[in-house]
């Protein structure tokens, strides 16, 4: 079979062979190339952005920061931990729960058989094997050496795949423009965010804001190094039965729940 590119003489609306050198086509191609270059040029502007590696520098790989939440102490209706997180990190609700940021939320559980209810805060579970970091195409979602899972806001492209992958609904997408941001908690429209375990405080040796706030009321949240068997949190975990939310998934959350 021989392929032969030629014209039908224009009888069907095609260009005749005699017009093989098609000036209009050449002109169009040149114009299209110029237009394409004009459109693409701004897109290839290089960005100076911080990296996840830089953000994680200084984290101690011997530590694994985690939380232990005693559900029996958590008071139903109390949102002290949520308010403290909002104040510390500068996020707020606007009455639109589906699009508002939800770094931490209070969940009420009801056993349909007994009618018993429980209340507990849910936030990023700072998994040892975080699905959000696995699926993130750019590596913006990452886990520090000390187990804190973060988003590099300079590298996040806003694809939201991490939100699809997170088993805990722990991540929020910034849907609208922001004001009054905290310098230690940079946020940006079009990027994904979530609980940072108050990494800026932890790096200074201070407990996360939710832990501090809860300590003043119910004392239901304990913070510490779960990799250190001598830490208070590890001793409680070793003494009492605790559980991880969706522990069956094998992602090994750093947040544990007691009396659930």
């Amino acid at each position: 079979m021989t392929d032969r590119s030629q014209s039908c003489g224009g009888s069907c609306g095609c260009k005749p062979e005699a017009e093989t050198v098609d000036e209009s086509r050449r002109g169009f191609l040149a114009g299209a190339a110029a237009a394409g270059a004009t459109v693409l040029a701004p897109g290839v502007t290089l960005y100076a952005y911080g990296t996840a590696e830089a953000a994680a520098a200084g984290a101690d790989p011997k530590k694994r920061w985690g939380l232990l939440i005693d559900v029996s102490k958590c008071v139903e209706g109390c949102t002290g931990c949520v308010t403290a997180c909002q104040t510390e990190n500068g996020w707020k609700t606007t009455g639109k729960p589906a699009t508002d940021p939800q770094w931490i939320r209070k969940v009420t559980l009801r056993d349909p058989k007994s009618g018993a209810t429980r209340s507990a805060p849910v936030m990023c579970q700072h998994c040892a094997e975080p699905p959000c970091a696995d699926v993130c195409p750019t590596g913006a979602s990452f886990k520090r050496a000390d187990g804190i899972v973060l988003v590099d806001r300079h590298r996040c492209i806003g694809c939201r795949y991490c939100m699809m992958a997170c088993p805990y609904k722990a991540r929020s997408f910034v849907h609208e423009a922001l004001e009054d941001q905290k310098p230690h908690a940079p946020r940006g429209m079009g990027t994904v965010e979530g609980c940072t375990l108050c990494v800026h405080r932890v790096d200074k040796g201070v407990a996360p804001a939710c832990v501090e706030a809860c300590a003043q009321t119910a004392g239901a949240i304990m913070f510490g190094d779960i990799a250190d068997p001598k830490s208070e949190i590890s001793k409680v975990i070793a003494t009492y039965a605790t559980m991880q939310i969706r522990g069956d998934l094998g992602v090994d959350p750093g947040v544990r729940y007691r009396n659930l």
């Binding site: 970091a133 696995d134 079009g190």
Partner: peptide, 18 residues
């Protein structure tokens, strides 16, 4: 994308687990 202007970031940073 939330940040379509960062397409170059997506093209220069690859997480091969993703």
């Amino acid at each position: 994308l939330g940040r379509p202007d960062r397409l170059t970031v997506a093209m220069t940073n690859y997480n091969f687990r993703s």
